[in-house]
Design a protein around this nucleic acid. Structure first.
Lengths: 300, 300
DNA sequence: GTTCCGCATGAATCGATAG
DNA sequence: ACTATCGATTCATGCGGAA
């Protein structure tokens, strides 16, 4: 491991009150209750969505979702450091032709619980499923609800800056339909010149709308979100060696993001199948890193 | 006028119970109460957002917003036809470091009132207000809440289809930061080729995320949303000659969209200043249309 | 007739200052 | 202590004037 333990974290770990860089198999609420107060720097998770279909292995019924989640969010608030953040990736499905309301009810309930609802980021899924229904289009976005314990919290905005203006989009915006056609015939000259002007421009701060594709590579598992999603928030809300918690770890995507960013992780997952899957991904990644290191050593 | 009156609408209008293709100066709730039942095909509006700052000429305080809006939405439901839709464009500001909750409270309250919350579209504002703060990024999106009276409602999805794959976005999504820089050196070849691919592409259904810039700048008036926003929804939820209502007409953007799409409109606006502004825009547009017709007649 | 550059203008938000 | 006001910050866009 290239990550290190800061003194604070080191004490908690050595006293055996906290596992880190592992995936714990078990019930989220039970495990959370064994953890010490204010030891987590950042929480990112995508909990199971509400689902009334009985067949689903562990769908929580819509009308009981809030009461199911509140004890968990209460524990999350307890284990989170005062300056920490909690990002909840969630999106209500539609049922009987209407959007379900349990997510917005949850926001109100968590505020009563003491959380601050600081912001709602939009994850725009660029390459989402095609599909069409008589009363709606494809659902191409999910909520990333940002909760904190205090008004002031850790945030490192410089780490997620983006190139100024979306150069291709910007160019397109100015071109009329006719101009687009005209430009086709004189590629190479005028067009290229302009593109070079846009590059090398400053970086600017992003907005609260994230444009990320869904992960298309189905390597035997289906992660509910791409690794770039937790990556963005982890860069934004933590520093190296910080400890990130995902209480519904699933396929281990949050853990992978942590490893890549040199953050410590702690995952909780109830299904053993997913624990194994996540650990497999992690091992695979670590192997690749080691191989790369070896190659680098050989080539010098 | 190129629009016509269908029999149903014609009866209501001739009996003097309903004005159409006008902007009525007055209080929204008062005017609504004079209108007959089920005469409107579609409602699009962007009401004044909640604002606790006293100086603002008529901001509705956050904690009283829901009770202020409910009587209005009740009338809106009454005047809307059974198969009609209501799209509410709104976004809560942040206050005291948190997002306000009155919008999500309004959704829950309107459901109790009998509305169906069918969908939440996202308007992604490409050019959002600038600024930098320690705890958040620029707010680049607004809600377009879709309410209906019944599960089945009028929707014409084919009218808003878009060219398959925005090639620029798609391309950007795939490019890593390094690839973007590399692309600089091979502009001219691949770039123009893609432009030509755009043409003749198949059309596909859009998603529930709309990418539109705000119309800012020196046009003499400032509309809070671009004409393309109501245009999109009017095409989606109405046919020609249908009647569209905007109970908070403002600068008249919804009316302009209607005229361009050959729909009838009915606007309500409390501030005389805005009534004049809206009527001015409408007259200007109609003049331009007439001029164009003249030119066309001359050139043939 | 083009293209380029400068500039005003936003449904913003926070922190400091003043009452 | 609590509330109202003001200045600083920031960036995509469209317009007008200049080359």
């Amino acid at each position: 491991m290239t990550t290190t333990l800061n003194r604070e974290l080191s004490e908690v770990v050595s006293s055996n009150r906290l596992n880190i860089d592992t995936i714990i198999h078990g019930d989220c609420l039970t495990i959370l209750k064994t953890m010490p107060d204010t030891c987590i720097d950042f929480i990112f998770t995508s909990p199971p969505y509400a689902d009334n279909r009985k067949k689903t292995y562990k769908g929580i019924p819509t009308n009981r979702y809030v009461e199911w989640f509140l004890p968990i969010s209460n524990e999350l608030r307890r284990v989170l450091k005062p300056e920490g953040s909690f990002v909840l990736n969630i999106k209500e499905r539609s049922e009987g032709g209407e959007r379900q309301t349990y997510v917005i009810e949850l926001i109100l309930a968590m505020k009563k619980q003491g959380w601050l609802w600081t912001e709602e980021y939009i994850w725009h899924k660029k390459n989402c499923y095609p599909g069409k229904w008589p009363n709606r289009f494809r659902d191409a976005w999910e909520r990333c609800l940002h909760f904190t314990k205090k008004k002031k919290f850790k945030m490192f905005q410089d780490t997620v800056m983006v190139p100024m203006g979306d150069w291709a989009e910007k160019r397109l915006a100015r071109l009329s339909e006719r101009d687009k056609i005209r430009d086709e015939s004189r590629v190479g000259s005028g067009f290229g010149k302009n593109v070079s002007n846009w590059l090398g421009k400053q970086y600017v701060y992003p907005t609260n709308v994230l444009h990320l594709g869904t992960e298309c590579g189905n390597r035997g598992h289906s992660a509910s979100f791409p690794v770039t999603l937790p990556t963005w928030f982890i860069k934004l809300f933590t520093e190296e060696d910080d400890l990130v918690l995902d209480p519904f770890m699933g396929a281990g995507t949050t853990a992978l993001a942590c490893i890549q960013l040199k953050r410590h992780y702690l995952g909780i997952e109830m299904m053993e199948k997913y624990c194994d899957l996540a650990q497999g991904s992690i091992n695979k990644w670590n192997e690749r890193i080691n191989n790369n290191n070896n190659i680098r050593q050989l080539s010098f």
